[in-house]
Design a protein around this nucleic acid. Sequence first.
DNA 1: ACGTCCACTTAGGATAACGCAG
DNA 2: CTGCGTTATCCTAAGTGGACGT
Length: 632
Amino acid sequence: MFQPLFIYKFLTIFVLNFDPHFQVKSADGKVKKEKENGFSSPGHVKSEPEDDFYHSPKQEKTLKREREEDFEWEEERYKDGVKWQFLEHKGPVFAPPYEALPDHVKFYYDGKHMKLAPAAEEVSTFFGKMLDHDYTTKEVFRKNFFKDWRKEMNSEEKSKITDLKKCDFNEINDYFKAQSEIRKAMSKEQKLKIKEENERILQEYGFCLMDNHKERIANFRIEPPGLFRGRGDHPKMGMLKRRSRPEDIIINCSKDSKHPKPPPGTKWKEVRHDNKVTWLVSWTENIQGSIKYIMLNPSSRIKGEKDWQKYETARRLKKCVDRIRSQYHEDWKSKEMRIRQRAVALYFIDKLALRAGNEKEEGETADTVGCCSLRVEHINLYPEKDGQEFVVEFDFLGKDSIRYYNKVPVEKRAFKNLQLFMENKATEDDLFDRLNTSILNKHLQELMDGLTAKVFRTYNASITLQQQLKELTSPDENIPAKILSYNRANRAVAILCNHQRAAPKTFEKSMQTLQAKIDAKKDQLSDARRELKSSKADAKVRRDEKSKKTVETRKKAISRIEEQLMRMEVQATDREENKQIALGTSKLNYLDPRISVAWCKKWDIPVEKIYNKTQREKFAWALDMAEDDYEF
DNA sequence: ACGTCCACTTAGGATAACGCAG
DNA sequence: CTGCGTTATCCTAAGTGGACGT
């Protein structure tokens, strides 16, 4: 077991030896897996004698039990919201300074060439680069851009350039396209050089030291300036996102660490030592005035533990969800309107996995809603529709302005309540006028410690995966078929959570190509069968070893082709069903990875078929923890 | 009870890297 | 070896929810 004294000693040695330049990957680029408190991180230090202390060979089961204890111990280590004891990093990487356009790249106003001063020119390139994008045709985008662009112009530019329609950015657009072609056409050596330089920056700035771990940082680069790309009908789209300078940046690190240095001749806005937060760097962004952060990679201890905790909370909900469900069924009958509304909203959140729906500041963001912020206009009630009773039709824009459209039969009492909530209301009125997320979450907190609205999404997603896997996996199918089943289970969750994507641009084409391949494979198969038949006949006549052998090889060839064909057909089905559905979001954020790991172990599927390298790093804790009998 | 601030998770699109057929 | 389609990674916007002050 860990002795705090040893930890402390280890930490001291480690800090002294910390060198941000050293390699963490082995020569072949493979990440060495190291077990430590159930977490493995690509950044963990190797070849320290103390390592043996962490990696002493033990039997799996023993290791597992001890690791679980370590988790508890870790939890206790950080009381009162303390997140770390020691934090050292090199600060952020700034966006490269603006490089003026070459003289031959011209901007035209009203058909006449006009040389812009650097400030205005830089902003013009932001727009010029985006000419092919839909954004530049949108009125709001153009209006916001033009307004902010004019702020960057000198008085001469400002007086001349008064109409965006008269601006010709085409040469700028062509220039950047050409630049990107040049980059693509670079020689191998040049590309390698760039790759090496990126790797060097990653090694220098991409890692930090938090307590006794060297951890990967998620986003160590400061966001470059550009035009704000809000999603959906965002009122601020096209506004200029300013360049951040060191004077805008707050550094967070421990007092006794080597503080990051600001670029020569500059100062940080502030250096603070707040170990109740997990971020390393922050700055305030100028569009919404919100704070941006640099934080650790999902593979880090601090993110992994939190993730694990999230699923443990969802599992606790599993234990009491029946009680909570019967509770809200009761609350539907309450004489108090606020309780009825709370109950119906919770019913939606539970049944349909809707998001909580915080209020938003009008005019500051796109008009999107979640459960608590639904308005009358977002639902239609049908006492009877398509042979079903009490149907609610939802149609609203959710997070990222993704449309949620669903027709669901609901329980009669819920339906009657909805009718009641909508009485004497205008379409733009709140459906749940006596409810908001804060009220709902306070209620949930009373039902279960740590329960909030979002836990239902996690719970329902994970339980759905588990149940679908049970239902869809057939024991005698081969691995590709089992993986198809997994993807279908995953898909059921993605549909529940309404995780959509734009159908890939190449979808139709690639589907055709695949179909052509399948047809070709089918032809190949019938050819092979014909050949087998003739060689069988041949063998019957000749009765020699050689012809018998031919029969065998041809049989093998057939089964190989059959296998290939099957694989392709499975792939085609999978792709078709996946056209507009994004599996990644649920996989990464909602599905308890231990369910997937257990499923892989149970059916002998290599976990690499389910999780790629990054995902395995993020879920290292689960890979370590889950056995084949894990139950969510 | 409400508004505001802050910290953190969740999200889809853009872009880079990879890998395979021709 | 090259071009093209797929997959992985990067990017950063857009949510959730708690704390705190009034």
